[in-house]
Structures are given as C-alpha cells and as structure tokens.
Simulated assay, not measured.
Amino acid sequence: MTAAAASARSAAGPVYPILIAISLCHMLNDVMQSLLSALYPMLRTAFQLDYWHIGLLTLAFQGTASLLQPVIGMATDRKPMPMSLPVASLCTFVGVMGLAFAPSYAGVLIGAMAVGFGSAIFHPESSRVARLASGGRFGLAQSVFQVGGNFGQSLGPLLAAFVVLPLGRPSVAIFGGLAVISAFVLARVGQWYRGAMVARVRKATDRSLPLPRRRVVLALVILTFLVFTKNIYMASMSSYYTFYLIDTFQVSVPTAQVMLFLFLGSVAVGTVLGGAVSDRWGPMTVIWISILGVLPFTLALPHVGLVGSAVLSVLIGLILASAFSAIVVFAQELVPGRVGMVAGIFFGLSFGMGGIAAAGLGVLADHHGIRFVYLICSALPALGLLTILLPSRKEFIEGA
C-alpha cells in the first residue's frame, strides 16, 4: 500500500484490516503472557514455591515491561520504529522457550523477564498504529486493539487446563509458534505503518497542551493511579484467583482455570463495550460507570459461594475493564502528539506497579491466607472516587 493510499484510507475512516491485524497480534502476544500466570499452580508444585515466589514471577514480568515501556514510548515519539514490532514478538518467543524448558526457578524468572521485554517493545508502537488507523474513532480503535490482548489473556487459562496440564510444562514451547506467526504479521503491519508515517512526516503535530501544565500533570497522575488500583485488583485475580477457588471451594485445577477464563473473557467484552461508549458519550462517562458500578460486586465476592463467585467475577470483569480504553484516550487528549509516552505509562508503568502489588499480595497471602487478600482488594475500587478531580469536557473546550 502506498503512503498516499494509507493516508486516504485513514482519513476516510478506521483502517479495519490494520486494526484487526494489530488486535490479532495483541491477542497472540498476550496468550503467551497469560500462560505465565496460568502455569503458576504447576510451577508452584514443580519448584516447591511459596506465594511470594509467585508474586516475584509476576513482578519479574510486569516490572521489566514497566521500566522499559515509558522509555521506549518516549523514544518512539521522537523517532517511530515500525520494524521494532516483529522484534517484540521474537523477544517473546525467547521468553516462552525459557518458561517451557528452564530447569530452575531462576531460569523461569529470566524467561518471564524476556516476555516482559517483548511486551515493552510491542505496546507503545502498536498503540500508535491503532491510533493512526482509527480514522478519528480513537475509543473504538483503542478498544479493538486492547480487546485482542484481553481475549489472549482469557485463553491462557484454558490452554493451560487442556493443553499444558495434560502434556506438561515443555508443551508451552508449542505456543512459541504463535510468536513466529505474530512476527510475520507485524512485519506487514510495520510496512503499512511506515507508509502512513511517510504521508504524515511533513505535517506539523500540534503538541500544545489543552489545559494549564499543572492541571495536565495532576490529571495524568490521577489517571495513572486509577489504572494502578484497577491493576492491583486484576493482579489479584490473574495471579491468585485459581488458588482462592482451590483453597476455598476445593475445586480441581482445570475447574479453577475455567473460572479464571470466565473472568478474563468478561474483561475482553468489557473493553469493547467501554470503547464504544467512550466514543459516543465521552471517556469521563465510562470512567464513572466503571468506578461506581464495580464496587458492590468486589465487596460481595469474598462472601459468596462457588456459583456466586462465577457470576460476580464475570460482572466485575465486564465493568472493571470498560474504563481502560477511555482512560488511555483521555490521557492522549491531555498530551497531544505523545502516543508512545502515554502507552508507556499506562501499558508499562501502571502494569509494573500492579506487578509490585502482586508481590506484596503474595506476602499477605502467605501470612494471613488467600481470602484475606480478597477482603483487602474488595475495597480498592472506592479509591476511584478521585475521578472527581479530573478536568471536565467543559474545561477542555474553554482551554481550547
């Protein structure tokens, strides 16, 4: 596709083939990432791990991505790197091989860090591709991109339950083939991306802030904190929900993995719904719905039975995930022309902070029990009331 054609298609509306391709690669990327948390019960048995070891694995993955993503995002804001996308998939491939064949816990840690390194490269540039291909429908584009990742995360527990558990940890290497497929697709996406950037390279990007600098900084801090609190809860579910179900209801590991799939699948659906609502009624509407809607269900989760846990986890996933795309779009409006930096903050820094929290939750679980973790986390959404400090749409209009 020529640069002129890329520009024309983007101006006409969303470039759906590119959005679908980048979402598909996000799915493949996050399938491999989610295998790490889905492997936790097996790794715990194989290496005689405590809960804090599990938390450290989450920290190794998310911490690596956290430290690198903002740096890579700011660098690619200055100089976009289209062909870094397939390189990200190859890094993930190396990490998956480590998870499959590492003979020690230390080797698994290194594999987790390699997966995090691939994630750090992938997210800033792929988020920029989604925005370039949006045709102005930024919420839709961000949610289509993000839902691929959510769907990939939801598949991890099922693949672990029905492939990895029966065949053993080396079977994780099978999924390394997904990284190779992703690298080929991303190479083609990178070609389109390069053409789109050539078409835009001489256009001056307006980077003037829509609000006073102090107001923008405060809003970014609040948005980062909102994602951080959401990611703590997400970390409690992705890292420890299977253990909670096994310890509380004595279910089998495959059953617990299916329950985790229900939660992660609802996260994927909630992401799509949130993006659509954000484009129609604005990101602030979605953020408020997500905050006020999820709290009653998180508070109830530690006090219900197995069926109730399944129902509540689906509702929590739907509502909790709806705000993420809206938060990213809102942040991009606050700092125009810095898509990579925003992606680095919200896909990297905040997720890495969630990884640190996961390690802390593991320590709490070791000392006070896994149910105590969910009692603590159930009140986290209440911190989302800080949304009241965010600038309103009226402020944006007056600032312009």
Rank of each mutant, 00 (worst) to 15 (best):
264 L>W: 05
172 V>D: 06
167 L>T: 14
230 K>T: 08
204 A>H: 12
204 A>P: 04
232 I>W: 04
175 F>M: 11
201 V>Y: 12
271 T>A: 02
205 T>G: 12
217 V>R: 02
291 I>E: 06
206 D>A: 06
272 V>Q: 11
264 L>Y: 05
260 L>W: 04
284 M>P: 08
198 V>H: 09
231 N>M: 08
256 A>T: 07
227 V>G: 10
204 A>F: 11
182 S>V: 15
255 T>G: 09
282 G>Q: 01
276 A>H: 10
240 Y>S: 11
235 A>S: 14
197 M>A: 13
181 I>K: 00
263 F>I: 05
222 I>G: 03
269 V>L: 08
171 S>A: 15
213 R>D: 15
184 F>C: 10
245 L>N: 07
284 M>G: 08
266 S>F: 03
207 R>H: 09
226 L>W: 02
266 S>Y: 03
224 T>V: 09
268 A>W: 04
256 A>Q: 01
211 L>E: 04
243 F>N: 07
177 G>F: 00
255 T>D: 11
227 V>E: 14
203 K>C: 00
167 L>D: 04
259 M>S: 03
200 R>Y: 06
171 S>T: 15
211 L>S: 05
239 S>E: 12
180 V>S: 06
300 A>Y: 02
299 L>H: 11
179 A>G: 09
264 L>H: 06
177 G>Y: 00
228 F>W: 09
223 L>A: 13
184 F>Y: 10
184 F>D: 09
175 F>E: 14
232 I>K: 07
180 V>W: 00
258 V>S: 14
289 I>V: 12
216 V>L: 07
175 F>A: 10
261 F>R: 08
196 A>R: 04
228 F>P: 11
250 Q>F: 10
182 S>W: 04
254 P>W: 06
239 S>P: 12
264 L>N: 09
202 R>H: 15
206 D>E: 06
254 P>V: 05
